[in-house]
Every structure is written in C-alpha cells, then in structure tokens.
Design a protein around this nucleic acid. Structure first.
Lengths: 191, 191
DNA sequence: TTGTTAGCGTGTCATATGACACATTTTTTT
DNA sequence: AAAAAAATGTGTCATATGACACGCTAACAA
C-alpha cells in the first residue's frame, strides 16, 4: 500500500484522516502470469493501481485479430473508464503478462469516497481527470509520430517495459507487425 | 444558447436556478472562416461549445507537417484539456473551417461553477468525464480500424462533416494522405 | 470582372509494410 | 531431463501507400 500512498501524495495534500479513509477503501491483491483481470462481455467494476508487473489490455478487430490498446505498467492507476462509469459491458480483455501485485478500488467504494467530503471528491476527480488527460495526450502523440518514433519514445520513457514485454505485444501497441518492429530494431542497432 | 441548454439537459436534471446560473456563465460568440480560435504557445483558457460550423484542431510533426487531431462539429463541448487544466501552453492550433457560432466558458467561471454547489460540481464533472471518455473510445477505435474502416465510420456517424470539410483534412484526420483517401473513395463508388 | 489561390482528381514510381515460411532459441510443462 | 510450446530472428514476395507531378475546377479577392 506504500506505493499507492506515495502516488496519492503526488496529487496534493490531504488531511491524514481522509488519506487513511481513502487507503482503507483499497485492497491489495495479486495475479499470476496468465490470469485474466478483465474478461469479455462484463462490465468493469473497479479501478486498479499497479504495484508491480505488467498487464496486457487488448481488443479484437472485426476479423478477430488481437489489437493491443495498452500495456499497464507499475505505478499507474487504470481502468476501462467507459465501462466503469456507465456500467456497460466491454468486449475488451485484460490479462497479466507477468506476476502482478495491485490495489483494487471497487466502484461502490469509489462513489462512497466521492460522497464523503468535497475535498475527497475533488481529490479523486483530479486523479480521474489526470488519467484521462494523459491518455488523450498519448493518443495525440500517436497520431503525429511514425512507428519508429513511437518505438523510440517508448524505449526512452519505459525501457523496462520494452525489456519485459514480448515483442509482438510491443509491436501491436505501437501499431505495427512483429516483423516491422524487428526491422526497426535492426536498423537502430546498425546505426 | 438554446442548443447549449438542450445539451446540458442531456446530462441529467438540474434545479432551474442552477441551470440558469450555469448558462449565465457562458457567452455566445462567433468566428469567421479562417479565424484562429487557438494560437500556438499560449494556454487554452476556455471550454467551447459549438453551435454551428466546423473547427480544425491540429498540430505539427517534428518535420513541420500538419497533422489533424480533431475536427470539432456542432453540438459538442471541446477544449484542450491538458492545457486548460494545468495552464500549460500548447503548441497546437485551432482555426475555423467555416463561419462558426459557439459558446465560451472561461476557466475562472468554470471553477466558480464548481465551487457553487455540490450538485453543480458533480454535473460539470460528469460532462468533463464524458468528453474525455468519448475521446478515449475514439482513440481505441482508431487503433483497431483500418483507414478505410475509419472513413466508413466517419461517413456513417458524421456525413455532414465529410461533406463540409476539405478532403485533405479528412484524410489527415483518419491518418492517411489525400491521395489514398481518394483511392478509397474510388473503390467505394465503383462497388 | 478578372486574376489568384485553394481544393480536387488522377497518373507514375519507389518503397515500406504485411503475409508467409522456416530455422533457432527460450520458456514452460510433463 | 525430455518433450512440447511459445517467442524470436530472418528471408522472400506481393502490394498498399506516400511522394511527386500536372491539369482542372471552384472559390475568393482585387
């Protein structure tokens, strides 16, 4: 829970009792490599904070091809916001790529926190806004970068992820094939 | 202001006096075709609600090539959230593609609304979350669709935009060149 | 009205990419 | 420890795409 505490502190000061309440609503859990966190056609009922390991969040095209939407890394809060907010089922899936430790905040507890006080409500909203805002920036960056630039960007900002996660998933994440990513890597090591 | 009122009503009921207050904080404005709404290296200080016309929101790649991030259509609320929230300057630009009528909510008034009451604060947060959430869904869809599928999707969901906005901008929006979009159109009319 | 500019349609061509195939290595399972 | 499965590296080839070039038309400004 220590990591989550540090994470929260990054969003501004909160009275001790409120911070304690916030943390008390979260429960520590774990997954083994290969375990599903989110299964298709259910609604997502929690927000997750990753302490260690990697999650693979993906969907499928019309033709059944798997497309990576996100690789969730340690020290970030994550959920499928649309499904979480509107209680709509999601077709997407999420699986543990490695053993994973995480904290879970259930939907009902999320709303309990928001009802507790204005300062807690504001605090939580700031976090949600930031998560989404980052995602939007990410999406915009993706639009303006080539596949190679996206790879270099990833390598720079999250080298560990590039090391730990299978190439085909990294390739899918940056929007290309395994083979093309391999070509890019060859070019880069040659230079 | 009527359109904005209808838009707000879509987000749930609000006491009359609060709805009036909300609307009173927004001011109706207009742009001529070609006018800049957002200029580079300033922070974005408002949320906009488009009543008629189209806006072109774009950025530039490292090499100076223009990349369309969004075409803003009537009846939606929009801003550059990161710049708006954190008061950071944005390199991006936004220009009117046609004559435009819109409503503006200034940053300070936005916060004034949030401080007014819990119900107003919740109401506004719901809108912001929805704007962002839609953007995220859009980004995920983009990941899993081919250029042709994106075009068809756009044609289905916003045929008017496809009619009113220049092809090179539509092409850039769906992530391809003017020429390739033309080839797609030719294939589609042939079939 | 006329001159100028912006947008559009279309052809050619070089090239980056995806699809496929297969060898090799690493990881997992029994 | 052996066998099976998964992940990776690499080559060939067809093709979709971007870059460029050019003529045409529509919109706009002087």
């Amino acid at each position: 829970m220590q990591m989550l505490y540090e994470y929260f502190k990054g969003f501004g000061n909160l009275p001790n009792d409120e911070m304690d309440f916030l943390l008390s609503q979260c429960t520590a859990k774990a997954l083994k490599k290969g375990d599903m966190l989110i299964t298709p056609n259910r609604h997502v009922d929690s927000i997750y904070f990753l302490e260690s390991g990697y999650l693979h969040y993906y969907t499928h095209t019309e033709l059944g091809e798997r497309v990576t939407l996100k690789v969730v890394s340690p020290n970030i809060c994550w959920t499928v916001l649309d499904s979480f907010m509107n209680q709509t089922p999601s077709k997407d899936e999420c699986v543990a790529l490695t053993d994973v430790r995480f904290c879970e905040l259930k939907r009902k507890d999320y709303f309990a926190i928001k009802d507790k006080s204005k300062s807690l409500s504001d605090f939580i909203n700031r976090i949600v806004e930031q998560i989404l805002s980052l995602k939007v920036i990410e999406a915009n960056n993706k639009s303006k970068m080539t596949v190679e630039q996206r790879y270099l960007h990833l390598l720079q900002n999250n080298p560990e992820m590039v090391r730990e996660v299978p190439v085909n998933i990294i390739a899918s994440l940056i929007g290309t094939s395994r083979e093309t990513l391999h070509r890019i890597r060859r070019r880069l090591t040659a230079a």
